[in-house]
């Protein structure tokens, strides 16, 4: 087993215990999708695409009072070291479900009855913590698609390596470490939409890890916001005089 934390307290990739991996966010990267986003988180590269609201096919899945949210998390065959079978695996089906459930509370689905929204997450390169990175990108893509949302969703994981609680596990740390705690929140509403724990933690450790994950989420949320603002408004100042009104007003 490799040592995950050296004598200086640095992790295998040189990070401190409370440091996120370098990340990059982009929004509006796909022309054909109604909304899209791209995230790089360490070596993760994930594309998120949103289609909808649109008509539901097959028709019998239509919900009379709200929108049907469908989510697909998929890892490309080339996203990992040894080729992954492109068919959806047990793990991918489960992650699709929990991502859908993590996004649902943020969306005002009642505004779009009898329609469907499809969210596609394609992992182009995987490096641990892809569900969190995917979720962060999916929320951006939904905002880009102009779907009514109560809040954005942002996710980050914390974990345990030896006795040390650390932020944002990479692939090796996830595999060799002792625990992994992915957390997704709606930052303005202060609500948790996803909380999983793989491994064992004491109550104290859990508290520390949860707080640390929240800090990570806050950092990512600021980046999410900045990405949306710069995509839609560039450096432009808000107009002071011009008023946008339709003829009906």
């Amino acid at each position: 087993m490799t040592t995950l934390i050296n004598e200086q307290g640095l992790r295998v990739d040189g990070r401190r215990f409370d440091q996120l991996r370098p990340f990059k966010l982009e929004v509006g990267v796909l022309r054909n999708a109604d909304g899209s986003a791209y995230i790089e988180m360490g070596k993760n590269k994930i594309m998120a695409a949103v289609y909808g609201p649109k008509e539901v096919h097959p028709k019998h899945q239509t919900l009379p009072d709200r929108c049907l949210l469908r989510c697909r998390y998929h890892m490309s065959p080339f996203s990992v070291d040894t080729r992954k079978n492109p068919a959806p695996s047990r793990r991918e089906i489960e992650i699709s479900k929990i991502l859908r459930e993590a996004l649902e509370p943020a969306l005002i689905l009642g505004d779009y009855p009898r329609t469907a929204i499809d969210v596609y997450l394609e992992v182009l390169q995987s490096d641990g913590g892809s569900r969190c990175a995917g979720l962060t990108a999916a929320a951006l893509a939904l905002a880009d698609a102009g779907i009514n949302m109560r809040d954005l969703v942002v996710a980050c994981a914390a974990g345990k390596l030896g006795g040390q609680i650390v932020l944002d596990l990479s692939d090796v740390e996830d595999k060799e470490g002792d625990a992994d705690l992915p957390v997704a929140i709606m930052p303005n509403l202060n609500q948790v939409t996803l909380l999983q724990l793989d491994g064992m933690m004491t109550g104290e450790e859990f508290k520390t890890a949860f707080e640390m994950a929240l800090q990570g989420c806050k950092t990512l949320y600021d980046a999410q916001k900045a990405t949306l603002i710069s995509k839609y408004f560039g450096k432009a100042e808000p107009p002071q005089q011009e008023v946008q009104e339709g003829p009906e007003e």
């Binding site: 609201p53 905002a143 698609a145 102009g146 946008q244």
Partner: peptide
């Protein structure tokens, strides 16, 4: 706000002019 857009506060009313959406 529920959208990306321009928020306007005037005469006691708040609204957001969205910049994307169907």
């Amino acid at each position: 706000s529920t959208r990306v857009g321009l928020a306007e506060i005037s005469r006691g009313e708040v609204r957001v002019i969205p910049l994307s959406g169907v």
